[in-house]
Design a protein around this nucleic acid. Structure first.
Lengths: 340, 340
DNA sequence: CTGAAAGCGCTTACAG
DNA sequence: CTGAAAGCGCTTACAG
């Protein structure tokens, strides 16, 4: 596999490397037609492929960005990533996606790795626990955009859902359908991660606005694998909840598994709404009412914002965060208690 | 963002660049303890991060591989990719994943892009329609491994499912449960893509071995968005099928959507098996009987094989293809016609 | 035990 | 209109 280099092309075409380089970069301004033709010919004959690594070294730009998602298992992450890829692709940027697996150490490793690879900027779904690193990048004026969560005291713009609104939409809908005992289950809280906290706050506030009790035993923040146990507990209460708000897709999955296992009929024995519009929501039986995030728009925004920072070198953020509106997708998993 | 380079570290530590480089590459053999300490100190003070791009240029290795999946929408692709990533990660290789979107032109573009980026090897779920390119890489002795499909006359090893066996398992199980009219729906055939053809062949052969008719009107290869129409046709036949084998996850999804829409009860009015163990199979109602591919093993094998080729430079393939066994995951979506 | 020098394959002023 | 030269930030024989 002897590699063909620009020097080979130059020799073959009887011009200098500079001229070949000009040609490749389409700076034809003053290039003779015959020269052009000869170079083209030589490139074809030799099967020359430019070495982007060499170019990147010289230009100090790899035309590549990195995306570090907190946890690739969330549907949200993959959907947003694909939108980011779309935007970057159109701008001739490549995208490298890494999965921090909710582990700050992995996140750190990936940030360092990607920066060593000279990516031109980073989109991070932050674990929240690498504050020093985040700050360092900020200080260095390195282009970064956050997604899904903001980090207290780190003024890097974040592309987020209106999380409180998401819970409100769900609770409002439950209430409208005559539910009074509404529980919420989310994944564990991390004080450095805004979104989960906000969803819980929205849930509480919405309950209050409907004059419903906020009960500690209806509010649980736990790992997905503990959902089954928790649901058993909840549903064995004197006053079991009539409705469950699942804080994200992983929790929803566990709720559905539980109800199948224990023969609770969703939409009859138990009403359910999930935050995140999971792919199977529409063809599940019964179909699942969800709160959808505008993942495509959010990813697009994140990509555009980062590319702006990269191009304009104005990495300072004009505004703190970008909040996107959630949408209620009404389907069949909420019983209508008002009907009878 | 003035970047700190090796030269800066060298100056600060009062040694030469060479020595710093040795240090970074852990060639301590003859290095004085105090030198080591001074370098370490300088690196910390300056916050030096090596530039991998420069290293790659010199070493002619990026320690990165590319993965080009035919269509990222298939669950199979993402699962295999993650296994590949795991293996590479352990070997200190990075992974760049691209989606050809079933489009040979995109595939071509990505192959060229990744090679221009000097990735050390490629794992491809081939569209099958870039034969010249595949052959060129083979001729150049460039490390490549195929996944999911082999390409006729291109002796590049492929990591594949025993596709015929997959269909056989499904048909055998349908037959065992007393079904006689068994249909199969797959995505469109491409003569250059082995797996879909093999699945259909396995289906036909299995029918014959059970003495069942092979009917043209029970065998359809169509785009997912046409499944609804086709199912309407099939189920309006004088002798409608009792069972449907969905050739992959996208088809399965359409079958489920159809049955929901038209109120066919899966596992009662219509039995279903899907090839690919979709994530929601176990908690769907009814849970879905599937044929699982050992995606993790397959990805691991693909990664290991590629890394072998990269390291040993023996890119010639010892054996043609690697076939992995499918597994029947018995759940509830097949009716037992023998019971009554 | 450490340093000077060449070179990886490009790009980019600058000169002519 | 085109070429010679320097340089991007590393690594690696080789010399001492």
């Amino acid at each position: 596999m002897k590699t063909v280099t620009m020097a080979d092309v130059a020799k073959q075409a009887n011009v200098s490397k500079s001229t070949v380089s000009q040609y490749l970069n389409k700076r034809y301004d003053y290039m003779g037609e015959k020269t052009k033709a000869r170079i083209e010919q030589a490139i074809k004959e030799l099967g020359y492929q430019p070495n982007i690594v060499a170019r990147s070294l010289k230009q100090k730009s790899t035309k590549t960005i990195g995306v570090i998602v907190a946890n690739i298992l969330h549907n949200f992450s993959t959907e947003v990533s694909r939108a980011i890829e779309d935007v970057c692709h159109k701008a001739d940027f490549h995208t490298i996606i890494c999965n921090a697996d909710d582990d700050p150490d992995k996140e750190k490793k990936y940030i360092e790795m990607l920066r060593a690879k000279q990516v031109d900027g980073l989109i991070i779904f932050p674990t929240g626990n690498n504050r020093d690193l985040y700050r360092k990048m900020l200080d260095q004026n390195y282009p970064v955009v956050f997604v899904d969560r903001s980090v207290p005291d780190i003024p890097i713009s974040s592309i987020m859902l209106e999380n409180e609104k998401a819970s409100e939409l769900a609770v409002d809908y439950f209430a409208k359908k005559g539910h009074e005992r509404i529980a919420m289950i989310t994944t564990p809280m991390n004080e450095n991660v805004s979104s989960r906290v906000e969803r819980l706050e929205g849930y509480q506030r919405a309950l209050q606005s409907h004059g419903l009790d906020v009960r500690e035993d209806y509010m649980r923040s736990i790992d997905p694998d503990q959902v089954e146990g928790i649901l058993e507990e909840m549903l064995a209460l004197d006053q079991p909840p009539q409705a469950i708000l699942a804080g994200n897709d992983l929790i929803l999955k566990e709720v559905l598994t539980f109800s199948k296992l224990h023969h609770f009929k969703i939409g009859e024995d138990l009403s359910v709404i999930g935050i995140d519009d999971v792919p199977y929501a529409s063809f599940y039986s019964p179909s699942i009412t969800t709160i959808a995030q505008p993942t495509f728009k959010m990813g697009k925004m994140a990509g555009e914002l980062l590319l702006d920072k990269i191009n304009k070198k104005s990495t300072a953020d004009q505004r703190p965060d970008y909040h996107f509106e959630p949408t209620l997708m009404v389907r069949e998993s909420v019983k209508d208690n008002k009907e009878d």
